[in-house]
Design a protein around this nucleic acid. Structure first.
Ligand SMILES: [Mn+2]
Ligand SMILES: [Mn+2]
Ligand SMILES: [Zn+2]
Ligand SMILES: [Zn+2]
Lengths: 137, 137
DNA sequence: GACCATAATGCAAAAGCTTCTCATTTCTCT
DNA sequence: AGAGAAATGAGAAGCTTTTGCATTATGGTC
């Protein structure tokens, strides 16, 4: 029940917030831009302003419900936070996004940061390439 | 002699291009945004339009003279290409950028991409953290 | 060195994404 | 149901980057 998720993080339960959360949970595509969400909601006859979508996504991000990524598409994409960190493999032809997790890389990163004396707060690893389907064309 | 660099890649030798290239070679800070370059040139009494700077940087990128990065600062940063790939460690407090290269990570990335059937074209690994100096404050 | 065709520049306007303002609506709590 | 507080929608504004077009500079030729 999503209503709980919102209350838990101190956000009022409103229609826009419910619909956006629902969409993030159920959409085929896990990684969505604000505009994607806007259009998908329109298709479902839920007319929610783009400004609200941006506002809500930022609130969700602050609340730890979603994560924002900056792939090189010009627009940020958001995905529901599932508690397990992962990185991304993005097809430059069709935009498909795959996820992966690699302990060796994570460990190396921590080592690099600590050797440089940095207190690491975050990282972003994105591999760009052409997916198997797009290679055939 | 920078004039050669430009001719080599098929670009006319113009004052803006020379000045921008020179700045990228000599600036204290290796990673500069278009606006940074604009302002530094102004300080040096070289009034070059921002549009030209963007255009030239894109041409330099296409020609392989510079590399463009998207740190999460809202603006792209550019650095002179030195032929050796590396990744970045960015201080979220002061904006300092450090470079590193890690063979283990590079190898893992290639393995991940090929296991997913992707033909890798590029990747971006950015570690965000707080640098030693900023930790003291 | 002057000339010409072509390419590059500067400026302002436009575009693309995101945030903000403020009047109106919706929630929550009683 | 009603009051107070918070959220929404619509449009304006903000930022970074790109584009159109008139003007200027460059590189090759005579
Ligand atoms: Mn993901
Ligand atoms: Mn670098
Ligand atoms: Zn693809
Ligand atoms: Zn710092």
């Amino acid at each position: 029940m999503e209503t709980q998720d919102l209350k838990k993080v101190g956000l009022k339960v409103t229609l826009p917030r419910m619909k956006i959360l629902e969409l993030l949970q159920n959409a085929d595509q896990r990684h969505l831009s604000a505009e994607d969400i806007y259009k998908l909601l329109l298709e479902a006859d839920e007319e929610i302003g783009l400004a609200t979508i941006y506002r809500v996504l930022t609130q969700f991000e602050t609340a730890g419900l979603v994560t924002r990524h900056h792939f090189e598409t010009g627009q940020a994409v958001f995905e529901l936070e599932r508690g397990e960190h992962h990185d991304h493999l993005v097809c430059i032809k069709c935009g498909k996004v795959e996820e992966f997790k690699n302990e060796t890389i994570e460990t190396c990163q921590d080592k690099i940061a600590s050797e440089a004396g940095y207190r690491i707060t975050d990282h972003s690893l994105i591999i760009y390439g052409v997916c198997p389907e797009c290679q055939k064309k």
